[in-house]
Structures are given as structure tokens and as C-alpha cells.
């Protein structure tokens, strides 16, 4: 192995197998390993030569969903322990956010935005990035007024205040899209009071820890996600030993 003495090879192989949680597997054949273990062996083979940079190209695409989540945590943990600069290519946006310090979103061969997961999710520079990273509502509207970075937009039959990434490029009357994440929309029974918008629930899907809603609001369809705190949620007041009641959403 790269002109490394045999004794050192044995030592390094032992170290790297321990690092990926496969100590004692030296004598196993590939067919005796699970999918996750085979992936760890591939990782061990890459890091045993002590590279300065690691490139992962869709490393988890062949694994089932549960194992993918487990392996991405292991890869992230290992990368931090080894402190190796790592380039990780994936089409899975959640995976990208889970393993990265910085993300570059590419479209047609060009980087269209680069930044932290929070930057990309909360401050997308384009509709492409907004739609590519997570779920989003893109609500059609027209600029009513611009004051610095603050923009007032006529949309959904009312005016809505928002931030603009490039407010100086906008003028009253310009067609725009409001970017609203599904979890940033609150809903309550009834409707229309206190300046809130009125909508109708057209679909409700219970997904365990969250409930997804599709709403019809002033001719637009809005995706809404509300998280259910569940029966084990902490009581709102510290001195209260038991929650008396909990309203279901």
C-alpha cells in the first residue's frame, strides 16, 4: 500500500476500522457485511491513505432511508474528528444541510448560491434555490412600496410586509413572488379577524409529529405545516406539575 511497511499497514488498517466502528471485521468478506457496513468499509478505504481532501459523490444513494440518516451522522462525526476538508455531492437537500458547513447550490453547471444551510433556507437568492432547498410557498404579488430592504407587496387580496434580497432592483408595480415556508404560517379556527387572512382547509394530513395542511386563500394554494407537541410536551408553566388540557390543532 503506497510503499508503506507491512507493520504500519496493519496498524493503520486496525486504526481506521476502529474509527468507522468495524474493529474485528478484518477477516470478513464483503458478502458478509450489511449495506451500512460496506459503506463504512468504503469510507475506511478512502481515509486510510490520509488524504488532504475527501470527495463524496452521492455516497448514500444506494442505502435505505433509515440507514441514510444514520450514515450521514456518522460521516459528519468522522469528518469532524479527522478534520479533513470534504466536498460532498448530493441531490438530497436534507442530507446536504445535515452534513455541511457551507453549501453550494448548482444549476445547469453553475453555482447559483453559496452559504450556510440557514442562509439558503431563510434567504434564498432566487426562486430556484427557494424551491430546491426545502418546501416553500411562492405567492404571486406586486410591489406596492419599497423602503430600504423593506418591501410592501400587494398579494392575497391584502398588503404584506416582507424583506427583499435585492430591494434596490424593485419598483412599485413590479411582479414578485413572496417566499413563505410552510412552518412560518400560523392558522387558527375561524377567520379574517384582526387583519389576518381568511382561508379554507382543502386537505389535512396527519404525519405523526406534524400535520400538513393545504389551504385555499384568495385564489392561491398555501402549504402549511404545524408541529404537534404531543402528550409528553413540557408544561408551559414551570410550577405546574400536569397540563390540565391540551388543544388539538
Amino acid at each position: 500500500m503506497r510503499k508503506v511497511p507491512a507493520a504500519e499497514v496493519r496498524q493503520r488498517v486496525g486504526e481506521v476500522l476502529a474509527l468507522v466502528g468495524l474493529a474485528g471485521y478484518e477477516g470478513q468478506f464483503s458478502g458478509q457485511l450489511s449495506g451500512g457496513e460496506q459503506q463504512r468499509v468504503a469510507l475506511a478505504r478512502a481515509i486510510v491513505i490520509r488524504p488532504r481532501v475527501l470527495l463524496f459523490d452521492e455516497p448514500l444513494s444506494n442505502l435505505d432511508a433509515k440507514l441514510r440518516v444514520q450514515m450521514r451522522h456518522e460521516i459528519r462525526d468522522l469528518q469532524r474528528r479527522l478534520a479533513i476538508t470534504t466536498v460532498y455531492v448530493t441531490h438530497d437537500q436534507e442530507e446536504a444541510m445535515a452534513v455541511s458547513d457551507r453549501i453550494a447550490v448548482m444549476n445547469e453547471g453553475s453555482v447559483v448560491q453559496e452559504g450556510s444551510a440557514e442562509d439558503l433556507y431563510h434567504r434564498p437568492a432566487s426562486q430556484f434555490v427557494a424551491q430546491f432547498v426545502g418546501r416553500v410557498n411562492l405567492v404571486a404579488g406586486r410591489v406596492a412600496a419599497v423602503a430600504g430592504d423593506a418591501v410592501t407587496v400587494a398579494a392575497l387580496g391584502t398588503t404584506i410586509g416582507a424583506r427583499a434580497v435585492r430591494a434596490r432592483d424593485l419598483a412599485p408595480g413590479d411582479p414578485v413572488r413572496l417566499v413563505v415556508r410552510p412552518e412560518s404560517i400560523a392558522i387558527a379556527a375561524g377567520g379574517g379577524a384582526d387583519g389576518s387572512l381568511q382561508a379554507t382547509v382543502i386537505a389535512r394530513t396527519f404525519l405523526g409529529e406534524k400535520i400538513e395542511y393545504l389551504l385555499r386563500c384568495a385564489g392561491e394554494t398555501l402549504q402549511v405545516v404545524r408541529y404537534d407537541a404531543g402528550p409528553g410536551a413540557p408544561c408551559p408553566k414551570a410550577r405546574t406539575s400536569r397540563c390540565a388540557s391540551r388543544k388539538m390543532p
Binding site: 448548482m106 444549476n107 416582507a162 424593485l170 411582479p175 414578485v176 413572496l178 415556508r181 382561508a199 382547509v201
Partner: peptide, 30 residues
């Protein structure tokens, strides 16, 4: 909130971003 019911909708403060309208945008290419 059951299907068919009327609801009041509010956007969280500082959670709305404005982007210019574009005619068409491409597809992903990692």
C-alpha cells in the same frame, strides 16, 4: 382544523422574503 373549515392565516414576522418574478427557471444539476 378539519377539511372544509375556515381558518385565519398569519405569516410569521420577518419570515417573508420577496424575490423578483422570473419567466422560467431551470432544473436541478448537482
Amino acid at each position: 382544523m378539519p377539511e372544509g373549515s375556515n381558518v385565519a392565516v398569519r405569516f410569521a414576522e420577518d419570515a417573508v422574503t420577496v424575490l423578483p418574478e422570473v419567466a422560467a427557471e431551470g432544473t436541478s444539476d448537482a
